[in-house]
Simulated assay, not measured.
Amino acid sequence: MRIFSETRPDINMAHKTRRFRIENLPRVTPETRWRTEAMRSYAQPLLLWFTRGQGRITVAGVTHGFGPHHAVFLPANTMHGYEMTGQVFGTAVYLPPDRSLNLPEEPLHLRFRDVQQQAELSNMIENIQNELKSDRPGKDRAMLAHAGLLSVWLDREVDGGDRQDLHPDAARRLAAAYSAMVERDFKHGQTINYFAAQLGVTPTHLTRCCKIASGRSASALLADRIHFEARRLLTETRRPVKEIADELGFNSAAYFTRAFQKQTGVTPTTFRKLS
């Protein structure tokens, strides 16, 4: 794969490769559990490689169990969250939103029983990580090349591997469609009635399908997504509470404070001080 011209470097290359990031899955405490369990998304593709432990992961409104040697690929802006049973070990690989990589356009959940498959994926992640840590010439090109190989490998495993069907029935397909709408519109102050009408179903039917797919109601998924964003903004910025409330579609700071306290048990100001 030729990523850019040998004689004229791509002016966007540095920006794209800065989006590479590899982290160990976090050690969760009661105070930080929301960072993994609450519904959220990222503006870039993400590969989760679980190597030890087990739990449940919700991807686009549909919940499945995961265990050792499960890989979950999430395209950019895919709403998700996962709950861990005990300590889980693994790696989160954040990839650049570069169309030339031809990464999958739909979420994937793959299980690898074969030791060689497990080693191949771990080695590809390690290759990217080694380049990230290095200062060798051609580092940016090398990372994109390794990411391209990872994309090809995922395509091959989808064709012949042990893949979980994330949307095996109408209920889960509806939950996935709802999840995509929530991710797009959760800051606009819309109600469940609005989302149900857009999907051509009743609010009762939408909630029933969400409970089948994820064990949670439609309103719980929406609230979870909104309040993850609220907690993120409170911990990662110094923006006033009123400004955060406005961005998230609340009519007033007082209404936001009541809703936040109901969801988290503390006020936004207290949460910020404790974080």
Rank of each mutant, 00 (worst) to 15 (best):
S5M: 04
E6P: 09
T7I: 14
N12E: 07
A14Q: 09
A14R: 04
R19C: 03
E23C: 06
R33Y: 11
R33G: 12
W34H: 05
T36Q: 09
A38L: 03
M39C: 07
A43N: 12
L46D: 03
L48C: 06
R52G: 09
G53L: 03
I57C: 02
T58H: 04
V62L: 15
V72I: 14
F73T: 14
L74A: 10
N77I: 14
E83L: 15
V88Y: 03
T91C: 14
L95P: 11
P96H: 00
L101Q: 04
E105S: 14
E105G: 15
P107I: 10
H109Q: 14
D114R: 08
D114V: 03
V115T: 10
Q117I: 03
S122V: 13
Q129V: 02
N130H: 09
K133E: 14
S134R: 10
P137K: 08
A145L: 06
G148M: 15
L150G: 09
L150R: 13
L150K: 09
D155L: 15
D155N: 10
D159Q: 11
D162L: 11
R163F: 08
Q164P: 00
L166T: 04
P168F: 04
V182Y: 14
G189N: 00
I192F: 03
I192P: 11
N193C: 04
A197C: 02
L199C: 06
C210S: 15
G215H: 06
A223Y: 08
R225G: 11
H227T: 05
F228P: 01
F228W: 13
P240H: 02
I244Q: 01
L248G: 05
F250I: 00
F250H: 03
F250T: 00
A253E: 08
F260K: 14
Q261N: 08
V266E: 15
F271T: 00
K273H: 14
S275C: 12
